[in-house]
């Protein structure tokens, strides 16, 4: 039985892969958890980072609020001629990107190892 805590908390982990700062996200991204993701991205980008990969492979749910956070990250990186890569293979998450047209805007890749 899942506890309520499991439903609302995001797991946010930083690592490096080649030239990319990697932010691996686990959990469900919605209006309650999105602010912590936005805050973490701002923290990671604070040090003039220009290469960011956001790994959504352990995300079970993403709604429009989460999309807004990712759009904000892309905007920050575009302002500094940076590069944002989204790692995602889950069909129901990819569907959200496709329906909103964001699959044509984001650089979405299927494997963190290919960075």
């Amino acid at each position: 039985m899942r506890k309520e805590q499991d439903l609302v908390d995001l797991d946010l982990r930083e690592s490096m892969k080649n030239d990319f700062h990697v932010l691996s996200v686990g959990g469900e991204i919605d209006v309650y958890t999105a602010p912590s993701l936005r805050e973490k991205i701002e923290e990671v980008l604070g040090d003039n980072v220009t290469m960011l990969a956001i790994d959504l492979e352990n995300v079970g749910f993403l709604d429009s609020t989460g999309l807004g956070v990712l759009v904000g990250a892309m905007k920050r990186l575009n302002e500094r001629d940076g590069n944002l890569v989204v790692i995602c293979t889950k069909p129901h998450i990819l569907k959200v990107f496709e329906i909103t047209g964001l699959s044509k805007v984001f650089d979405i890749r299927d494997d963190l190892e290919k960075l």
Partner: peptide, 21 residues
Amino acid sequence: LPDVVGGQGENGGFGLPLMHR
């Protein structure tokens, strides 16, 4: 849908279009 290339979308606007689709 927000015009992301034109700078929109950071503060939302995807929800209702998603629901309709």
